[in-house]
Design a protein around this nucleic acid. Structure first.
Lengths: 105, 105
DNA sequence: GCACAGTACCTGGCATAGCATAATACTCGA
DNA sequence: TCGAGTATTATGCTATGCCAGGTACTGTGC
C-alpha cells in the first residue's frame, strides 16, 4: 500500500472514529488495523497533535489488563473540524475521479 | 484544500493523463488546474522523478509561442505502474469508506 | 521467583512529496 | 524595449507517515 495516500486522511479517520465514541490509543490502532495497515508510531502523534489543537480532550482510566488507558473524547471544535475535513476529502475525491475515473473498466 | 490529500495521488493523475496522450509540463499543469489546484513547483519534480524511474520518455519539440516544449510519453513500464497505482488507490479509497463512509447524509 | 507475552503509551530520526519562491529564457505585441 | 505569456528548472521549507526502540503494568507457565 502506497503510504503517501494516507497523508491527511488518517487524521480524518481518527477524528471520525473518536467522533462516534471515545477510544484509547491502542484500541484505535486495533480498530483501524482491521481495515488498513497502520503503526502505533503513526497514530500516537496524530492523537497528540489533535489534542494540542483542542479537537480532543483526554482522561485516564484504570485497566486490569495493563497500564492505565488514555481515552480521547471529541470536542465541539473537533466535530466542526471533522465535518470540514470530511467535506474536503469528498470534494477532493470527486476531483480525482474527474481526472482519472474513466480508467474504471 | 488540504494539501496532504494530494500526496501520492498526483503521481497517479500524471501517470494516467500521460497514459492517454503525450503532454508537455506546462500543458499538464493547465489541464490538472482545471480540476484542482496545483503549482508548477509540484508538477515538474513529479515528471522528473517518473522519467528517472523509466515510466516516461521525453522528447523536445519547437514551439512558436515560447521556448521548446519537453514532451512526456509513457513507457510500457509506466503503463504497468499506472495500473498498479490505480488499483491501490481504488483499494485505499474503499478502505477509507469502510472507516468513515457512514457519515454521508 | 522469573521469563515472557500481551497490553498500553511515548519519542527520535528518517523519507517522501507538495509548495513557495526565484531564476532562466524564448516569443510577441504595444 | 518593456511586459505578458509561455516553458523549464532548482532550492529550501514543511507536514506527516513509518521504523525502531524504550518504558511500564498484568497475568501465565516453568
Amino acid at each position: 500500500m502506497n503510504a503517501q495516500f494516507k497523508k491527511g486522511v488518517l487524521e480524518l479517520c481518527v477524528l471520525t472514529l473518536i467522533g462516534r465514541k471515545d477510544y484509547y490509543g491502542y484500541e484505535l490502532v486495533e480498530e483501524i488495523s482491521k481495515v488498513l495497515e497502520i503503526s502505533e508510531g503513526t497514530l500516537y502523534p496524530i492523537l497528540r497533535r489533535l489534542t494540542e489543537e483542542k479537537y480532543f480532550e483526554t482522561y485516564l482510566q484504570e485497566s486490569s489488563e495493563g497500564p492505565p488507558r488514555k481515552y480521547y473524547r471529541i470536542t465541539k471544535l473537533g466535530k466542526e473540524f471533522q465535518k470540514e475535513q470530511f467535506k474536503q476529502w469528498m470534494e477532493f475525491n470527486q476531483q480525482i475521479e474527474v481526472l482519472i475515473g474513466r480508467e474504471i473498466k
